[in-house]
Amino acid sequence: MRRSTGERKPAWLRSFIPEPNLSHLVTRKCAGCGQYIIEDRENIWQQWDYGIIQGENLTVAVILGRPLTRVTWITAARQPRLTNVCGTAGLKPDGRYLAAHECGRMRISVEPYKPPRRERPPGQPWGGPDLEPDELAEFTRVWNLPCEALRT
Rank of each mutant, 00 (worst) to 15 (best):
R2D: 13
S4R: 13
K9Q: 13
L13E: 07
R14L: 06
I17T: 12
I17L: 08
E19S: 14
N21I: 01
L22G: 00
V26D: 04
G32E: 15
G34D: 13
Q35I: 01
I38M: 04
R41C: 15
I44T: 12
I44A: 14
Q47W: 00
G51Q: 06
G55M: 00
N57Y: 05
T59M: 03
A61Y: 03
A61Q: 07
A61R: 08
V62F: 02
V62A: 12
V62I: 15
I63Y: 04
I63K: 13
R66Y: 05
P67W: 00
L68A: 12
T72C: 02
I74A: 10
Q79D: 01
P80C: 03
N84G: 07
C86A: 08
G87D: 07
G87W: 01
L91W: 06
P93D: 06
Y97P: 10
L98P: 06
A100F: 02
E102A: 12
M106E: 15
R107P: 15
S109P: 03
V110Y: 06
V110D: 12
P112D: 04
R120N: 03
Q124W: 02
P125R: 08
E132Q: 10
E132V: 02
D134F: 04
L136V: 01
L136P: 00
A137P: 00
A137L: 10
A137I: 01
E138I: 08
F139R: 15
L145R: 12
L145D: 08
L145F: 04
C147F: 06
E148G: 08
A149L: 09
A149M: 09
L150P: 01
R151Y: 07
